[in-house]
C-alpha cells in the first residue's frame, strides 16, 4: 500500500461560493502541510461547483480534487461518504480536515468508520507533533470545562474544526495549482435516504449562530420584561439576544434562544452575559466567543472568571447606562 501523504481539506460551498469555513480549513491545512513539508489538496464535492476550483487554489490549495455530479446536489450521507471514500483512497492523504458544520459533523464520523480510521470532531487547535509528525488534535470536552489533546496511529487522521477557530489566508489570485477531476461513479441505489424538503426558518432580526454580537440574559433578569432591555441593547449592537436555561424554562424567552450544551453553540465576536452565573452547561455554548463580557452582581460568579471584561453590579443599573453610552459612542 502506498504511503499516506499530504493534507486534504474537504471544503463546503454555500450559495455558489466557498463557505467561510472552507477558507478557514484551507488556512489551517496550509500551515500543517508546510510544517510537514507536504502538499495541501482540497476536495470539492457537489453539483455545478467546478467554477470554484480557482478560488480554492487562491486560498492555499496546491491541488484540487473535483467531484461534480447532479446526484451530489444535496448533501446525503451515503452519497458523500461513498464519494469521499473514493477520493481518499485515490489521494491517500495522511490528514483530512472538514468543517464542524451540519455536513461535516455527519460526514466525518461515518467516513472515518468506513475507512477504519479515527476522527476528532470540533477541534479548536491542530498542530504537528515535532517528534512523531502526527497530528495533535485539541478539542473541548466536558462542555468546554476541559480540553483534550489526542492523536492516532491510523491514517488518514480525520478532524473537523469549529467554525471561526482558524484563520484563512489572504486570497492570492496569482497562486497556481493542479486540478484533478474524479468521476463520482455513484450507483443511485447506494443512497438510502431522500431529501424531501428544505425548510428555512424565518427569524426576526439576527440569528444567534450568525450574530457577531450576542447579549445573553440569565436567571437574574427575572422576567420577560427584563429581556426587553437586552433586546434594545442587542438591536443597537446589530446583534441577537440569547439566554441561559432558566429564562427558557420559565418562558421569559423562546426556547430557541437558549445558548448552551442543550441549546445553541455560538461563536460571536462579543458575548455580553448579563445576570447569568456561567454554568458549565451554558459555557459550553458560548466558550468559543472571541470576547466575553460579564455583567453580574456576584464577583465570584463563574462567568466573571471566564470573561475578559466584567462589571460587578446590578444589571438594572448597569444595562441602561451601558446602553446609552454605547449608543453615544456608535453615533459619534
Amino acid at each position: 500500500m502506498a504511503e499516506s501523504k499530504g493534507v486534504m481539506a474537504c471544503i463546503e460551498v454555500s450559495e455558489g461560493k466557498l463557505a467561510a469555513i472552507a477558507t478557514e480549513i484551507l488556512g489551517c491545512g496550509r500551515k500543517l502541510a508546510d510544517d510537514l513539508g507536504q502538499e495541501l489538496s482540497a476536495v470539492l464535492v457537489g453539483s455545478g461547483i467546478s467554477n470554484l476550483v480557482q478560488e480554492a487554489i487562491a486560498f492555499g490549495a496546491d491541488k484540487v480534487y473535483v467531484v461534480d455530479d447532479p446526484l451530489l446536489q444535496d448533501y446525503q450521507t451515503d452519497s458523500y461518504v461513498s464519494v469521499m471514500e473514493k477520493v481518499v483512497k485515490q489521494a491517500m492523504p495522511q490528514i483530512l480536515i472538514l468543517g464542524q458544520t451540519t455536513t461535516g459533523r455527519d460526514l466525518a464520523p461515518k467516513l472515518a468508520f468506513r475507512l477504519e480510521t479515527a476522527v476528532s470532531l470540533d477541534c479548536l487547535e491542530l498542530a504537528i507533533d515535532p517528534d512523531s509528525k502526527r497530528l495533535l488534535q485539541t478539542k473541548p470536552v466536558y462542555g468546554g470545562n476541559a480540553y483534550a489533546i489526542s492523536t492516532t496511529e491510523c491514517n488518514p487522521q480525520i478532524v473537523t474544526v469549529r467554525v471561526k477557530a482558524m484563520t484563512p489566508l489572504e486570497l492570492d489570485a496569482s497562486r497556481q495549482g493542479e486540478v484533478i477531476t474524479i468521476d463520482a461513479g455513484l450507483d443511485p441505489s447506494v443512497i438510502r435516504t431522500k431529501v424531501l424538503e428544505k425548510v428555512k426558518e424565518e427569524i426576526e432580526g439576527v440569528k444567534l449562530e450568525d450574530a457577531t454580537v450576542i447579549v445573553s440574559g440569565g436567571r437574574g433578569i427575572g422576567s420577560a420584561d427584563g429581556f426587553k432591555q437586552l433586546e434594545e441593547l442587542a438591536k443597537i449592537l446589530k446583534g441577537a439576544v440569547g439566554a441561559s436555561r432558566p429564562p427558557c424554562d420559565n418562558d421569559w424567552v423562546a426556547t430557541g434562544l437558549q445558548v448552551g450544551l442543550t441549546g445553541k453553540i455560538v461563536t460571536p465576536d462579543l458575548y455580553i452575559a448579563v445576570a447569568l452565573s456561567g454554568s458549565s452547561q451554558h459555557m459550553s455554548g458560548c466558550s468559543g466567543s472571541k470576547t466575553i463580557v460579564a455583567i453580574n452582581k456576584d464577583p465570584e460568579a463563574n462567568i466573571v472568571k471566564r470573561a475578559r471584561f466584567a462589571v460587578v453590579g446590578d444589571w438594572r443599573k448597569v444595562i441602561p447606562s451601558f446602553t446609552s453610552k454605547v449608543k453615544e459612542l456608535l453615533a459619534g
Binding site: P299, V304, K305, A310, K317, P320
Partner: peptide, 15 residues
C-alpha cells in the same frame, strides 16, 4: 485574565 471595570457607581462602571 478578567479585567473588572471599576466606577464610583454601577452606572459609571457601565459607561
Amino acid at each position: 485574565e478578567v479585567e473588572v471595570i471599576e466606577g464610583e457607581t454601577a452606572e459609571e462602571a457601565a459607561a
